[in-house]
Write a protein that binds this DNA or RNA. Structure first.
Lengths: 219, 219
DNA sequence: AACCGCATGTGAATCTATTCACAAATGCTA
DNA sequence: TAGCATTTGTGAATAGATTCACATGCGGTT
């Protein structure tokens, strides 16, 4: 909101680091820090101070020379940038292994992601109660998503059906999708799709352990 | 094993893309493709042909000019590079929401990651059976890890205790750790730590949806 | 009110990753 | 076996991200 002509494009890495800063700031706030330097912030997430300052500088100048950044204020600013304090209506599709875990995942609520609807196609699951939410029939997907003003959909269905599901999700006008299925989904250009590929990090470990020589480590 | 003096360091992005290639090749193999071009491979994971060729070229030359890459052979080669066909003994710590989901996550076994041990500190969970594995007492962590020749540990415990757990894991001589707790863990330089931060992707979506203008989308 | 120490904010320099572009090699066909 | 259509493999060029380095400005102190 601050700068009106922001034509600079922010890199993905910067955004991901904002998430990290946000997390650290939450902790610092609890530890009653008033201010924090880029040096300290960097140390806590194993980054460099210059990186921290550069990242933040894309969005404004939040610090005070000689002092550092005001913890609570900066946290608020980053929440604003990331859109975390507006609250998001989320729907989850698929109540299998991963789906069930996500329903109970506290971290999501904490960040303003509220799971409002859960879908499945299994008659035995439909109607059952998961943490206070009744599982809906996938056949009502499109209308339910619209009626409940859902903004983000989390897909946790088998890879074989994920594309069909996502096609329907897109039809319902959803613009943000988080996919846990291990498959590359096609969506229109105006839909944001992010993939959570849990095997990938294990495979990275596998590679690192198999090639100890030429690898640094750390995510 | 092929080249002896591989002093070139492979970038993290390249390794992550190898995972993607591996996934596509598995599918192509099932679809009975004999060969595949860098163009087709690229299309299936929304990358560029040059990127695919460059990535593979770091490890050798697997293709045939004019023809493309032999699907099964390349898949085998990538498995070798990533260390996927040797099989890994994995231990899971924490049988909460996420931990339970991971025990049943088929994708892991498929890639050669075999969960051999499960730990928890909750007396009600210890001794119980999860998909054929009896939950062990966290107090036996160090000895159990050693006795069972565990190579990779997956940490799915609350953020507040994750560092203590990891310290013990490191003491047991484990060199590969996958962390699901939302906290930055400290480990020695010779230990590979990867973080799976599930909120991060949602936060990215939140940012993208809040700033539709200056964002491209896609993970 | 002048000084000192500290830490930000940011252009410039460097380093890294991606893409380009083309020579080299292969299979196929006639 | 010669020619054509492909597609690899890779240096060189480009684009992008990170780090450097320092002028700038703030707070505290005397």
């Amino acid at each position: 909101m601050i700068s009106e002509s922001k034509k600079k494009k922010i890199s993905e890495s910067t955004i991901r680091r904002l998430s990290l800063y946000y997390r650290v700031l939450s902790i610092l706030e609890k530890e009653n820090y008033e201010t924090v330097s880029s040096k300290e912030l960097a140390k806590r997430e194993k980054l460099t101070p210059a990186q921290v300052r550069k990242d933040l500088s894309f969005f404004g100048s939040f610090g005070t020379r000689g002092l550092g950044y005001p913890v609570s204020e900066l946290k608020k600013q980053i929440a604003e940038i990331l859109g975390l304090n507006r609250g998001w209506n989320v729907a989850l599709i698929g109540v299998g292994n991963i789906g069930s875990a996500l329903v109970g995942y506290k971290e999501f609520q904490r960040q303003g992601f509220n799971i409002k609807l859960i879908f499945d196609n299994d008659q035995r699951k439909i109607g059952s109660n998961h943490k206070g939410i009744i599982v809906s029939d996938i056949r009502n997907l499109e209308s339910d998503l619209k009626e409940n003003n859902i903004q983000i959909v989390v897909v946790a269905v088998p890879a074989t059906v994920a594309q069909y599901i996502v096609d329907d999700v897109v039809k319902a006008g959803i613009k943000g999708i988080l996919n846990f299925a291990s498959v590359n989904l096609k969506v229109p250009d105006d839909v944001f799709l992010r993939n959570e590929n849990m095997s990938m990090e294990l495979e990275y470990l596998s590679f690192a352990l198999s090639n100890l020589k030429d690898v640094k480590g750390e995510s």
